[in-house]
Design a protein around this nucleic acid. Structure first.
Lengths: 230, 230
DNA sequence: CTACAGTATCTGGTACGCCATAATACGATT
DNA sequence: AATCGTATTATGGCGTACCAGATACTGTAG
């Protein structure tokens, strides 16, 4: 029994540690707003709510801190990180640079598989918009970019994008609900796919940049409209 | 006593928690090779070596894990992450995209302060090369890029670059020792500064990309020359 | 009504113990 | 002697209890 075959019969084990489960739970809770920005995250309360020990909770908080989802006030403890408008714009800008890079690489590869995979994701997004299922829009959008990166073996960049994206997730869920985004969003993304199909690296780069730039502009509008009332 | 004045007399406290100190120590130990890639990081041993409790050690390991410096084998525990050549190339590529972006922004701002600050860092690098002080070369190079990002208020991107850079740190220390790097490195960086000085955004972008591309090529050569013997 | 002391709350940190698992060594059985 | 089963050990995962220091809150005395 040699090499790759050995993995085939490997027994699938849960393998998830309690800490990982707790991490996912808390991250999810933050991302979809169960914990609001600025909320204090009291260790012992989390212990009770999650049903795990302080050891686990502390490790989870450290992890989320290094992800930028949680901020730590000295001698006061962790709170859900606040997202200021400048930081959000920076994140969109970085995503633009990286997604543009990935789009260019996809275009230069001229592979029909890539185009097919991207179109499948895009169709999923259109369907989700039609069904008004905003959660599905988000996951399908993620999968679109996931294929964009992984098809050209850029998993590190994908990891970075993912890391940054969770920090602006509640913004994302607001931007996609915006008027006209249901039409313009998929339109911009199809421009990316078009450029990739015809092997136009520069065009794919620009199209990807345009798409996040549009999202950034909407996010800025949403955010500055909300903050003054805050 | 009102407002800003209150901070003036504030007693400067260490402020660094024990965990942060331990984090820095371990990261440093990994980055400059005290712990080699693949080494197991046994919690209880680290407790003894660092003189802290297991709780702290565990939090530190989690943090380094999310930084990509430590990998966790299921049921075996943490080891120092191995760096494969493909991942290194991806990291250099991302740095190219982000540093190029920052350089372009610097050029577009046309501010003499930026040029002055960059030239100061560059002079530091030249001096360090002349003195054959490789550690100083690294820190000065970091400071060069630090100013590149912070002068245009791109602290998030700087954070990303920093995060990625630690993962290839031992590569960096090998590339700068390479023949001719002491001449070509600063030369390429001065091209970045030149482009910024004349407000040439596209040129600055290309120059920054060229610089990391060169570093990437050297790193690839170093890495592929070393791996077969491994 | 203000100042101050006491108290509750919470994090940062430590110590210790228990359990599960993996690997290894050891011993027994055929 | 080879194989199989069983202790032992090492280690991570997890939980609990405790203490010190900082902060926020509160009630009381002047």
């Amino acid at each position: 029994m040699s090499g790759a075959l050995k993995d085939a019969i490997r027994v699938e084990r849960p393998a998830k540690t309690l800490r990982e489960l707790a991490l996912d739970k808390v991250r999810e809770a933050i991302v979809n707003g169960y914990f609001r920005p600025g909320d204090r995250l009291v260790e012992r309360d989390l212990c009770a709510q999650l049903g795990v020990s302080r050891t686990v909770v502390r490790e989870v908080l450290r992890h989320l801190e290094s992800e930028g989802l949680v901020a730590n006030l000295p001698n006061k403890g962790p709170i859900v990180a606040q997202l200021d408008i400048d930081e959000a714009k920076q994140i969109y800008e970085i995503r633009g640079a990286l997604e543009g890079m990935a789009a260019r690489l996809c275009a230069e590869r001229r592979s029909p598989e890539i185009v097919a995979a991207l179109e499948e994701s895009l169709a999923g997004i259109r369907n989700s918009y039609r069904d008004n299922d905003m959660a599905a829009v988000l996951t399908n959008t993620s999968s679109f970019y996931h294929t964009l990166f992984t098809m050209v073996d850029r998993n590190v960049a994908w990891g970075v994008v993912n890391l940054l994206t969770v920090r602006i997730n509640h913004l994302r869920s607001m931007t996609i609900k915006t008027e006209r985004r249901g039409i313009e969003g998929p339109l911009q993304m199809s421009k990316i796919v078009d450029a990739i199909r015809r092997g136009d690296g520069e065009g794919a780069y620009r199209a990807a940049m345009d798409h996040v730039a549009a999202a950034s502009a909407i996010a800025e509008a949403v955010l500055s409209a909300k903050k003054p009332a805050d």
